[in-house]
């Protein structure tokens, strides 16, 4: 299963980005092959619609779960209709590697 995590940087030591639509990087982590892929967020500086566009990006990569600090109302609606699970982690100090460890329970 693929999990998307919002990240502030492009290394596993980067911290979780507390915003979803305007995060710096998306990390696509595959729980089966244990691989990670860092995608720079092209919608980071969008004036409008960053959330919705990011949902499409995450969904097109086949993520079934998304970990972030917060989700906007519009993004949440689309996630619900796509049946993608949301995880809100209110800890901006958490590192991507630590989240991946949690996912490998």
């Amino acid at each position: 299963m693929k999990v998307a995590i919002t990240s502030t940087g492009n290394s596993p030591e980067s911290k979780l980005d507390s915003r979803f639509g305007r995060c710096s990087y998306f990390v696509i982590y595959d729980t089966i092959s244990n691989s990670t892929e860092f995608i720079p967020n092209p919608y980071k500086d969008n004036i409008e619609g960053a959330g919705q566009a990011s949902v499409q990006l995450v969904a097109s990569r086949g993520a079934e779960k998304v970990v972030s600090g917060e989700f906007g109302a519009k993004a949440k609606l689309i996630f619900d209709s796509l049946k993608i699970k949301l995880v809100i982690l209110k800890d901006p100090e958490k590192r991507i590697s630590a989240i991946i460890e949690l996912l490998n329970h």
């Binding site: 970990v67 619900d80 049946k83 699970k85 949301l86 995880v87 809100i88 982690l89 209110k90 800890d91 949690l102």
Partner: peptide, 10 residues
């Protein structure tokens, strides 16, 4: 345990 929030769709 980890302090997160998550939703349940099904």
């Amino acid at each position: 345990s980890c302090g997160c929030w998550f939703n349940h769709i099904e």
